[in-house]
Simulated scan of single mutants.
Amino acid sequence: MPDKTFKAGDRVKWDHRQGTTTGKVIKKVTSETHIKGHKVAASPDNPEYIVESARTGARAAHKPSELKKA
């Protein structure tokens, strides 16, 4: 599987319990951080992306494997 990389502003989609959501990448995270009270255990070898839902404006962290270009 090719390495999935995204940049800020990229339109992406991801699946969750209620279906598929679309939104945009806010930033790539490569160090431990917190979002909405949850720890994001990102590192340079295990980055995550902060994404913002187009529908609700909510932000969440996702692993690259969970995201697809929209």
Rank of each mutant, 00 (worst) to 15 (best):
A41Y: 13
G23E: 02
A58P: 00
K28T: 07
T30N: 14
T56N: 03
V29M: 10
G23T: 02
K36A: 14
V29K: 03
S53T: 04
T30W: 13
G57D: 01
T33C: 11
T56W: 05
T30H: 12
K28V: 05
I35T: 12
K27A: 10
V51N: 01
H34F: 13
Q18M: 10
Y49T: 04
G57Y: 03
S31G: 07
T21Y: 09
T33H: 07
K39W: 11
Q18D: 12
T56I: 03
V51Q: 00
P44G: 08
G57E: 02
K39L: 15
T33G: 06
G23R: 01
T56F: 07
A58M: 07
N46Q: 13
K27I: 04
K27V: 09
V40A: 05
G37H: 09
N46V: 02
T21F: 08
A54P: 01
A41I: 08
V29R: 03
G23I: 03
P47A: 08
K28Q: 12
P44E: 01
R55S: 14
A41S: 15
S43N: 07
H34L: 08
H34N: 11
K24D: 07
D45K: 13
K24T: 10
A41V: 11
T20F: 09
K24M: 09
G57I: 01
H38F: 15
E32D: 08
K36Q: 13
E32P: 00
H38D: 14
T22A: 06
E32F: 00
R55A: 13
D45P: 06
R55D: 14
I26C: 08
K28I: 06
S43R: 07
V51R: 04
R55N: 11
G19L: 02
V29H: 09
H38K: 15
H34P: 00
V40I: 15
T33Q: 07
G19Q: 05
K39A: 14
I26V: 15
D45G: 14
E32Y: 00
R17P: 00
D45R: 11
K28Y: 08
R55M: 10
